[in-house]
Design a protein around this nucleic acid. Structure first.
Length: 171
DNA sequence: ACGATGATGAAC
DNA sequence: TTCATCATCGTA
């Protein structure tokens, strides 16, 4: 299981490192695991696409925590978004889990794995029933595509053009 | 191309 | 208390 030291690094290092790791969920007495294939990084109050750019609020305060906790919120009134907080305390940053093996899309994977806001502000550890494991998959850096983030045009050209989306080449 | 659907944050 | 906005998806 990935521990706090893994998450307590700059989000732009954590995000590509999550590709090829396994998202593990314990639900109804069963444990299932899927390889992570696509993520996006959101970094700091200066990043206009990051929710924390509006400062610390009731919703975003979890992003100001130390890395290693979940940030789960509702978008468009319908879909739960799964993020894991990274970096040091008081530096708001998180990685959006955008795709896993078998479920391509952040709204679809949360629905498939029964992930919702009850995980918000919970530790990414077995005790919360949702965590991430390294199962020895070897991913070469050249097999990870760097792409612009999706759905963040509202943040303006500077931030929407940053290639902070990481995706496994074969997907 | 567009509507579903509700939490959020800011303005009043 | 009201209003505009939104890290999406399925149907068309």
């Amino acid at each position: 299981m990935l521990r706090k030291d893994f998450y307590k690094r700059p989000v732009l290092k954590v995000a590509p490192d999550l590709i090829g790791k396994y998202l593990v969920v314990s639900y109804g007495g069963k444990i299932t695991a899927h390889m992570i294939t696509e993520v996006e990084a959101y970094d700091g109050e200066g990043d206009l696409a990051c929710h924390a750019s509006k400062g610390k609020t009731k919703r975003t305060e979890v992003m100001f925590e130390e890395g290693g906790v979940w940030y789960v919120y509702l978008i468009y009134g319908i879909y739960e978004m799964l993020n894991v907080v990274t970096g040091n305390k008081d530096h708001p940053a998180a990685v959006l889990i955008r795709g896993i093996e078998g479920f391509d899309g952040p709204g679809k994977l949360t629905k498939a794995l029964h992930i919702d806001r009850r995980f918000n502000n919970k530790k990414a550890a077995k005790e919360s029933g949702l965590w991430i494991e390294d199962r020895g998959e070897v991913i070469s850096k050249k097999d990870i595509l760097k792409l612009p983030r999706i759905g963040v045009d509202f943040a303006g050209p500077i931030w929407s053009k940053k290639k902070w989306r990481f995706r496994l080449k074969s997907f």
